[in-house]
Design a protein around this nucleic acid. Structure first.
Lengths: 216, 216
DNA sequence: CCTACCGATCGGTAGG
DNA sequence: CCTACCGATCGGTAGG
């Protein structure tokens, strides 16, 4: 607040050789990543429509026209947040399924991983997807849906296996939606300062869904 | 679209005696209610910040300055939507608990009632509360929280009783949050044209949470 | 509830 | 990435 954006920038790069870093260079990429994290945090806090370019610029230590050096439009920032969140979430989720654990263990690990993806500090990307979907232009929805479908498919397979094993019963699609819904909703009420840790919430969810079955 | 707001209004009230209905009269109240339903629908569809006064005016068949005859500010419209939704939701929910059913039956009925409150046609009020909370001014949050606490308390008691009866086990607060979260999330994916009816979703949720217990 | 309007803000751009 | 700026839109108001 006291320091001007100019000074902030100068303190980060002592002697900024203005023409040295070409668009797309490493410095630009770092700056873009930092900008995107700011976007994710603000979009989550205030919503896409409630966040102005000036909010973003100020939080990133830039002047108001500068974000458009990195993104063509504000909408492009939203799409980038969602895509990056999904790519990272897919990476972590696929790492769990690749372990080829028994259905029950895999399910528990998926819950814990997803909870981390939507609640851990700095993980604002997927929450933006979950809460600001309506702000995405129809034309931009397709590619995001493609990633999202892959995410859902991993969960659906996990639930299908539990149903096949007799651990869960009922319509497998509804089960997936209800289970994921319960976990997703925690992004709304979870507070790092609250009474329950992510481990505790994760265990409570697993117990609720898998209860009355022998623990292996 | 083809008809002007003027004509729409004229067709609704053939000979509008402009000074006949005093502010607060029955006609005004009906108009205000209709306006609020429009607000709820648009806020849900496009978000509070994504909805303009002109969107609301057009959908209500008014001119752009007219909504302010009924509400002092746009923020007041948001608060009114949330409060009306909670009052109606509390009414329906208290009607269920007043039946003094056994814990399991009461729980099933609560799920079905809540699902209706957030998914049935025209029930856009509570979804606005669930999805646009961040747009509520801090000063306005208190009175809404008071109503919301009463809603949560009804559910907490229902869950507490299930825990006391041994039907559920674990931290009762976490159980309430997880169960309500699963149901709340359905407002995001439920489609009237989709494969599952509200009855089916309700039954699937009840089966998931109460499974492995004798049905009475 | 309409008419006519305003000050503020917003996303975005040209040029360096 | 900054500077200087613009056209459009937005919430809201005065007066009837």
């Amino acid at each position: 607040m006291a320091r001007s954006p100019r000074k902030q920038h100068a303190s980060t790069k002592p002697a900024p050789p203005l023409k040295t870093h070409a668009r797309g260079g490493a410095a630009d990429r770092n700056r873009r990543d930092a900008l995107l994290r700011v976007c994710a945090r603000l979009f989550r806090e205030k919503g896409f429509d409630g966040t102005t370019i000036r909010d973003i610029s100020k939080a990133a230590g830039m002047h108001s026209g500068s974000p458009f050096y990195h993104f063509k439009t504000k909408q492009a920032m939203l799409v980038a947040v969602m895509e990056q969140g999904l790519i990272e979430g897919l990476r972590k989720t696929e790492a769990v399924t690749a372990l080829e654990l028994p259905p029950r263990e895999r399910f528990v690990r998926l819950i814990r991983t997803h909870l981390d993806t939507i609640c851990a500090e700095g993980n604002d990307f997927i929450p933006v997807l979950l809460y600001d979907w309506r702000s995405v232009t129809p034309a931009n929805r397709r590619r995001i849906i493609a990633l999202r479908d892959r995410y859902d498919a991993l969960w659906q397979r996990a639930v299908d296996d539990l149903v096949a094993a007799g651990t869960l019963s009922g319509d497998a699609r509804l089960l997936r939606l209800l289970v994921l819904g319960a976990v997703n909703w925690s992004a709304k009420w979870y507070r790092r300062s609250g009474p329950a840790s992510l481990d505790e919430i994760s265990r409570a969810a697993a117990d609720l869904f898998l209860r009355a079955q022998a623990r292996r």
